[in-house]
Design a protein around this nucleic acid. Structure first.
Lengths: 215, 215
DNA sequence: AACTATTTTTAGATTTGCCTAAATTTTATT
DNA sequence: AATAAAATTTAGGCAAATCTAAAAATAGTT
């Protein structure tokens, strides 16, 4: 399994094909910042290996074997992210790029020992679930802040957008995983929210609210 | 800097060209389990980049820039080995292969934080010195067990051969870094040694003695 | 249903890193 | 010094992963 093959599987998985959903060639190309023709080439190769279902012009979906492989890569990625934050004091907006490299290291023992060192974490620094050795994981049953009514309150359990820019915005406004958040009011005009975050009050735009998960 | 380029630089460094020594094409090829013609190709590329001195038929040596790069890879390799042993309970004969992968991860912050987590170790699990951020390192002034006279004693500070087979032999005979060793006698016929290792007495062959460093 | 626009695939080229086989240069030996 | 042996380089080719440009298929729109 080459690094490139692993990246394709991971991308297809993230684009929603844990569920037999067929993914567009174009969508994969865009996500991976590559060209559609490259995706077609790889689709054929992965189909050969039994990791994806592929028929010309019909889109691409993961097979069971493909899902299993994708989950093992996601597991590695998220364990490494957790390691970087918990053990090496990285900020949560700094871990993605490095984890993209570390996720391709091939050593089952390494990843199991890492899991142990971290005391078998269930969620990564962005609140995303970490698959176990056998691919099992529990998603939080969470809600987007933007979809909750005025008066609702809960704990921030994750973010949808993990971009550095967004995470830094959250840091600046002291929004982090574990913080209690309450919706004090909503602006009808633009959907912006008046929040109580911990002990403070803040306004956040609709766009921000669309990327914060509450439980 | 590609992974392959990094591996060439590291190999040339290990074959003794920290010191302007010219290294044979063949020697590099053998060490890397590749063909001499591939080495020639890479020599040209690395020369282009100013990392090696290369003239047709004259062998290859590292430039200052090449040494600097090689040292940074060696630093990463040895820090990762130390991490695997100290933090993940790997045995010293299990770390090399994984470190060969980890040494190519690109993140200065990662390696500096790792160094810090490990409390700035000076030597790796095999007793080899770990270069600092600026490439400086102190080699133990050590002696090969095979070159010491009867009666000599010291502390085991390293091994010359880091192969799994050799390290497992040492484990079996309870020889490890930090153990006091004394030469009780030497067999003139085959050079085998009668040793006191910690509280025990052992015979070891000349071949074994050629791969243990004492201080 | 016909046509247009979009998506997807094919064909052919490129780069990296490697290979084999043959040619060349250096080194060792007579 | 001539020749044989060994080391090294060149030339040409291959596989992986990508690209561009053109062709083909599908989807959307009058």
């Amino acid at each position: 399994m080459t690094r490139s093959e692993e990246n394709y599987l991971k991308t297809i998985f993230h684009l929603g094909s844990g569920d037999d959903v067929s993914i567009n060639t174009n969508a994969i190309a865009e996500q991976m910042e590559t060209k559609p023709s490259s995706v077609t080439d790889m689709a054929k190769k992965l189909a050969e290996k039994g990791l994806v279902n592929y028929k010309k012009y019909q889109g691409i979906s993961l097979t069971d074997a493909g899902v299993k492989t994708a989950l093992s890569i996601v597991r590695k990625h998220r364990l490494w992210e957790t390691f970087l934050v918990e053990k090496l004091d990285f900020a949560w907006d700094e871990v993605h790029e490095v984890a993209e490299q570390l996720e391709h290291i091939k050593s089952e023992k390494l990843i199991d020992k890492l899991d142990q060192l971290l005391q078998f974490p269930k969620y990564d620094p962005h609140g995303d679930p970490i698959p176990g050795k056998n691919g099992e994981f529990q998603e939080h049953n969470k809600d987007l802040l933007s979809e909750l009514p005025v008066g609702a309150h809960g704990i921030c359990v994750g973010v949808k957008d993990s971009s550095s820019a967004f995470l830094q915005y959250l840091d600046k406004h002291e929004i982090s995983i574990g913080k209690p958040i309450q919706i004090l009011g909503k602006e009808a005009f633009d959907g912006s929210l008046h929040l109580k975050i911990g002990e403070r009050e803040h306004m956040v735009s609709h766009q921000i609210a669309c990327n914060i998960y509450l439980k």
